[in-house]
Amino acid sequence: MIRQIFKNSKCCVAALALVLSTSALAQEYPGKLVKIVVPFGAGGIADLTVRVVAQKMSDSMKQPIIVENRPGAGGIVAADTVAKANPDGYTLLLISNGTAISAGLFKRLPYDTLKDFAPISTLGYFDLAMIVNKKLPIKTAADLISYAKSNPGKLNIGTINRGSTQNLAAEMFVSMAGIDALIAPYKGTPEVITAVTTGEIDVAVEILGPTLPQIKAGNLNVIGVTSTKRFAGLPNVPTVAESGLPNYQATSWNGLAAPAKTPKVIIDRLNKEINLAVADPDVKRRLLELGVVAQGGTPDSTKNLLASDIAKWGVVIEKAKIEKQ
């Protein structure tokens, strides 16, 4: 009996020590600069999005948050850096649908996309736009599908590099619509926009943000956005799903993750700060100007989103017969 009481007492002491340690950790964090590693170059939508949110978080947490751009190898360089970082909440990774795509594009990764990271929250979602050359008699996704079926093999769709979100969104459209079309990869967004404007290609699939100024100026003919809801900044532009291809959806998103084994109390604190930041009216306005709909989430919902996108884009990659690197 005495031995059992002693054993129970030791368990209680250990549990109390854990509670006190966790409580102290929660109060102390963050005690120094926090770094967010971004797998893209400076100036892009993802980079600008995380900088807007990070500044708001920094103000709230009263600690500097810096953004370190580490592009390369489809995001692998940045992700591997964070996967191997100390799980203390001071080194974070910008994750996205691109993180999910890389899981299907590469034969081997130096990390496990689902096991080596602790997703924290989404930051926002951003649409792709389906843009058509203004000389073509196409106003909706239904028109586009009809045109392609009447001209088999003649329709060409421009995107950026093969295996990108834009490229896979185009591949998925062709597959779901059951049309015969050529998907042509270009070096970058400016080249894609120029090609569809001049008529070098018939259709372009591109991130909405960089095209917004030209869309609003009337220089580009946009027949639809690729999410399940219309973009608030262009309320008169329908979704592809509602204008001709039901169930089609190809939304891009950004979020933050920490190395696996980061204490839950830190993940929860960061999640709280992210959700407060993206709910701020000024942050929402600034992101909307970039073509991003600010939206946070829970660690579980973010992990589920990442897992579902790995499965979704993996199927598209297989159907498109894109050779794994």
Rank of each mutant, 00 (worst) to 15 (best):
L155S: 02
I157L: 04
I157S: 04
G158V: 02
G158H: 03
G158Y: 03
T159H: 07
T159K: 02
T159G: 06
T159Y: 05
I160T: 14
I160D: 06
I160Y: 02
N161D: 11
R162Y: 05
R162N: 07
R162A: 15
R162K: 15
G163S: 11
G163K: 08
G163N: 12
G163D: 08
S164T: 13
S164I: 05
T165I: 03
T165D: 06
Q166E: 15
Q166M: 06
Q166L: 00
N167L: 00
L168M: 06
L168C: 04
L168R: 03
A169K: 01
A169Y: 02
A170Q: 02
A170H: 03
A170W: 01
E171T: 02
E171G: 00
E171L: 03
M172K: 09
M172C: 00
F173D: 09
F173R: 09
V174L: 02
V174N: 00
V174W: 01
V174H: 04
S175C: 00
S175F: 01
M176C: 04
A177I: 03
G178T: 00
I179Y: 03
D180T: 03
D180L: 02
L182D: 12
L182H: 10
I183W: 05
I183N: 08
I183H: 07
I183P: 05
A184E: 10
A184N: 06
A184R: 11
A184V: 13
A184P: 00
P185T: 09
P185W: 12
P185N: 11
P185M: 13
Y186D: 04
Y186W: 03
K187A: 15
K187Y: 10
K187L: 14
G188Y: 11
G188F: 10
G188C: 06
G188S: 15
G188W: 06
G188E: 15
G188H: 12
T189L: 13
T189A: 15
T189Q: 13
P190G: 09
V192W: 12
V192D: 10
V192M: 08
I193Q: 13
T194I: 04
T194W: 03
T194V: 07
A195H: 09
A195M: 06
A195S: 14
A195Q: 06
A195E: 08
A195W: 06
V196G: 13
V196T: 10
V196A: 13
T197K: 15
T198D: 11
T198W: 02
E200W: 01
E200F: 05
I201K: 08
I201E: 12
I201W: 05
D202F: 04
D202K: 08
D202Q: 14
V203R: 05
V203C: 07
V203D: 09
A204R: 08
A204Q: 07
A204M: 08
V205S: 04
I207H: 05
I207D: 15
L208Q: 07
L208K: 09
P210D: 05
P210T: 06
P210C: 08
T211Y: 02
T211R: 08
T211N: 14
L212G: 14
L212Q: 13
L212M: 15
L212F: 11
L212V: 13
P213R: 12
P213G: 13
P213V: 08
A217D: 14
A217S: 15
A217Y: 07
A217I: 05
A217W: 07
